[in-house]
Nucleic acid binder design. Structure first.
Ligand SMILES: [Mn+2]
Ligand SMILES: [Mn+2]
Ligand SMILES: [Zn+2]
Ligand SMILES: [Zn+2]
Lengths: 146, 146
DNA sequence: TGATTTAATAATAATTATTATTATTTAGTA
DNA sequence: TACTAAATAATAATAATTATTATTAAATCA
């Protein structure tokens, strides 16, 4: 992903452009599995050996507060991060522990319609997502992917 | 909830009937908020001061493994527990940190229909839930509930 | 029933994930 | 270039959960 886009995105939130912020955001944008803070750290420390894990956590939290990225809770309790902020759903793949995006305008319409129709007393709905859980299948051998 | 029902449920999984298991299951059944292990512990230790927090964790894990109860991940990262094992959805209430059940046969039908229609290559879907997030509103003053 | 066996529990140590603290460094700006 | 506020690295602390082990209790059986 273009470095200019990355720096502009960080700057657009009024945040200082630092090397650490650039590489953390870059790593998150490049990942498709919704990584943990530690996975991001492990990846970027190869080219940035001086970076601290606490900085990765803090940077991610700063991005979340500024709505540049999102947190995604996972079934095993450790937090995952998502560079996308537009509406989409997630598939949790239990045999690989990956979280994949699932996009469908039709689904959003169906859910919006459904929720509009229903009554929720004394409740202001702020978000809704279809959480799909599944397991990846090796098409040749059946389900045997780590 | 009837003690006989509780002991039968535990026995039906081939588990030994112990006082600790009875009170943990009883407390979970009685709760509507999907409590944490610690919330269950705090509640039951009043009448069972000798019980250990580790026993509560271990007991809950045993119940999960035996499909007597379910784990429910929460947005703030701490695990929650659910005495229900039938299909239903959850509403996470961000201003009280409660997780409430949301039941609707129509919703299940809509989602089942939708998922059946779609193609998921190399993926075996094992579960799906609508995750609703919202905030409780005090009908008199607007949103000001802790 | 009482003894035996096996599993569960209490107490506590250890681990994992995350957040807090603080001295040092750096980005943005005058 | 110098100044200042903010960010970072290093590390300590905390919260949540899991592991360990000696003790206790439930189920089985003589
Ligand atoms: Mn934690
Ligand atoms: Mn944990
Ligand atoms: Zn996503
Ligand atoms: Zn529930």
């Amino acid at each position: 992903m273009n470095l200019e886009i990355i720096t502009k995105a960080i700057a657009s939130k009024g945040l200082k452009i630092t090397h650490q912020r650039i590489v953390v955001y870059q790593a998150l944008l490049a990942s498709v599995i919704h990584p943990t803070a530690e996975q991001i750290y492990d990846q970027i420390k190869e080219s940035n050996p001086a970076i601290s894990l606490a900085t990765v956590y803090k940077t991610l939290e700063t991005f979340v507060e500024n709505r540049l990225i999102n947190k995604v809770p996972s079934p095993n309790g450790t937090m995952r991060y998502d560079a996308r902020t537009d509406y989409h759903n997630h598939i949790y793949i239990s045999n690989t522990n990956e979280i994949m995006d699932y996009d469908d305008i039709e689904l959003k319409e169906i859910l919006l319609n459904y929720l509009k129709k229903k009554q929720f007393e004394n409740l202001n709905i702020t978000d809704f997502k279809l959480q799909i859980k599944g397991e990846k299948i090796d098409p040749i051998k059946g389900i045997t992917i780590s």
